[in-house]
Design a protein around this nucleic acid. Sequence first.
RNA 1: GGGCCAUUAGCUCAACAGGUAGAGCAACUGCCUCUUAAGCAGGAGGUUGGAGGUUCGAUUCCUCCAUGGCCCA
Length: 501
Amino acid sequence: MEEKGNNIMDEINKLISERKQKLEELRKLGVDVYPRNFSITHAISQVREKYGTLKAEEKTEETVSLAGRIMSLRGMGKASFAHMKDQTGKLQIYIREDVLGERNYQIFRKFDIGDLIGVTGKVFSTKTGELSIQVEDLTLLAKSLRPLPEKWHGLKDIETRYRQRYIDLVVNEQVKDVFCTRSLIIKGIRKFLDNLGFLEVETPMMQSVVGGAAAKPFLTHHQALDMNLYLRISPELFLKRLVVGGLEKVYEVNRSFRNEGVSTRHNPEFTMLEVYQAYSDYNGMMDLCQKMILSIAKEVLGKDDFVYQENKINLGKIPWQRFSLYELLKEHTGLDFTNIHGLSEMRKAADRLNVKYKKDSPKHKILDHIFESYVQKKLIQPTFVLDYPAEFSPLAKAKKDNPELVERFELFIGGEELANAYSELNDPVEQRKRMEKQVEEKDIGEGREAEVDEDYLRALEYGLPPCGGLGIGVDRLVMVFTNSNSIRDVILFPQMRKETG
RNA sequence: GGGCCAUUAGCUCAACAGGUAGAGCAACUGCCUCUUAAGCAGGAGGUUGGAGGUUCGAUUCCUCCAUGGCCCA
């Protein structure tokens, strides 16, 4: 129904009907407006590499074939210039009636900005020294029916950019760069871990019992099995089952889903890296994390410093600084949180510090808020924050000398939380106690049955080796490396409400 | 969930204090064989996000709704 509505809209849109008319005229002239294929000899970047040094008015004898989208047109009667664009760059083409022939030039005059074309011709340099193709043969590869955004200002409307990313990519050059960097970062992760002998695995995205984090899940239903399933909020418990099974070094680049608010740093589906290594612990994970991010920076950015949100960040000063959570809180708030125990004391501390919280916020959420407002934004250079309270970290192993704290760290760069890691709790009896307590207190996030994952506990009972686990927010890492201030700028198709109107 | 802001031609933006909406690009019709934000001439393009209200008159003021952005929860 909606589609029909859109088609009616299209029909009344003058610009589109003009192009449809041209398409019909081209058909009448015997042009296949949506042909099957086209043989390319070069990408535009290859032409530039090979002939970038041509002097003004210099010609070559090599015939090349390129394909791409028309981005601009400058007609001058019996000759025209245009720019075409492929994935690798832009190049000027020069079309003359006396070279192309009268009929083919007439056909060309029906082309529009946005059309996909193939050109065959010789590389040359114009009077002003711009590398160009003297077109000898021109083929329409696909007719474009919708006008592109303006050539100079591009597409600025943020909503349209996110909803119609295909056009954002066509007209806004930097957007492609961000997603190329994203791809390189993920490649860099795989290369780094594979070289260390880690095994990449895939675990269920649809889980009947959710775990590994406190968050509201998405619910779905399997018809044939007639059972409810949740989309995973984390792959953690499955990856640790694999370590029980003897896969000692595993990782998963995983899409996870959380049924919570959207913001500049939260998309309902997001990408994480989770890594588990048997016989290691959170110290080992700190070392791994530091080396991995540094190696990715060198590979992707070619250096170990960069600018994020007007701050210069230097990853090269190894080891990265480490502070305990309570130490940082004391330094920045003046309060000693080791003495703050109950919920009411935590509320008092928040009130005193002018930090707002919801009436039903549990203690750890309030502490998070205090940390975010007083400490997090100041952690610009890479910083490991260590030793979190045990009551907020049910899957982490307690510190040997202080059972109230766990062996856990979070990594902050540029004021953003990028990683979270612990020495994994492998005592099945202790794990059961903590899970049962969570279920009792319903401290797992709303929207799901509070349920102990019995199969996970059974796996632990067989024996999980001492193990370090590390999670890295891949979207956040891309944000930091590409200096993007919204997660929506690093996700190709961010979640939006349904389009209206 | 709350607050503030935005929504005007295909795109980017104007419109004083409420007086019937303008420009550039794109498109259209001509002219033009080294242009490059090509140029010159001409004509066209709008239910100002939607629905109500106030007013002689609303893009402008008010209410509600939709979508988006930023901040807070």
